[in-house]
């Protein structure tokens, strides 16, 4: 009856945008020993003071149900939704990738960036900053390809996600 296989879950949490709300969510995860693979947060409705937190976590079915219930128990939490099981959804991440090289490697970096539809948002004579969006896997693949081509730094946003279709969450 209890499934013990681990699975990934992308959980969307709609919260009141008030001081300490992120600390509550993070404290819940660390205090109860849940994993956080990725966490993003930003205000989504300034007038209604609502923020949206997207958490990618992993655990057994029982643990993921617990995580949802524990989140829902927090007073400033309006709604939690496990997007992974509640129908189709879109998941994206944005990364800024800094590469420093010259000559043929520099041209190769630009060529690969073009294939990945990454945009150069900063350029010096010996460096680029690429902006890339896509799935986790796509960004990881891009970063791996940049490694031998002079990768200096990566800054990733973490995953944001939203359900497909006309309904909210």
């Amino acid at each position: 009856m209890i499934k013990s296989e681990q699975r990934k879950a992308t959980i969307a949490v709609l919260v009141d945008n008030e001081p300490g709300v992120l600390a509550r969510v993070i404290g819940l995860f660390s205090g109860r020993g849940y994993n956080i693979d990725s966490l993003t947060v930003s205000e989504v409705d300034a007038a209604a003071h609502l923020s949206r937190i997207t958490i990618v976590t992993s655990g057994t079915e029982m643990v993921i149900t617990q995580i949802k219930a524990q989140l829902q128990r927090l007073v400033p939490v309006h709604r939690t939704s496990d997007l992974t099981v509640e129908g189709p959804y879109v998941e994206r991440e944005l990364a800024l990738v800094k590469v420093s090289s010259s000559g043929e490697t520099r041209v190769e970096a630009l060529r690969i960036a073009d294939i990945f539809r990454a945009r150069a948002v900063d350029s010096t004579i010996n460096s680029f900053v690429f902006e890339i969006t896509g799935s986790l896997e796509k960004i990881s693949a891009f970063v791996d390809l940049m490694r031998p081509l002079g990768l200096v730094d990566v800054s990733r946003t973490g995953v944001v996600a939203i359900s497909r279709g006309p309904d909210p969450i």
Binding site: M62, Q66, A69, Q70
Partner: peptide
Amino acid sequence: IDASSINKNIA
């Protein structure tokens, strides 16, 4: 009354 008590230790 607390949904998080359900299926926490025992299914």
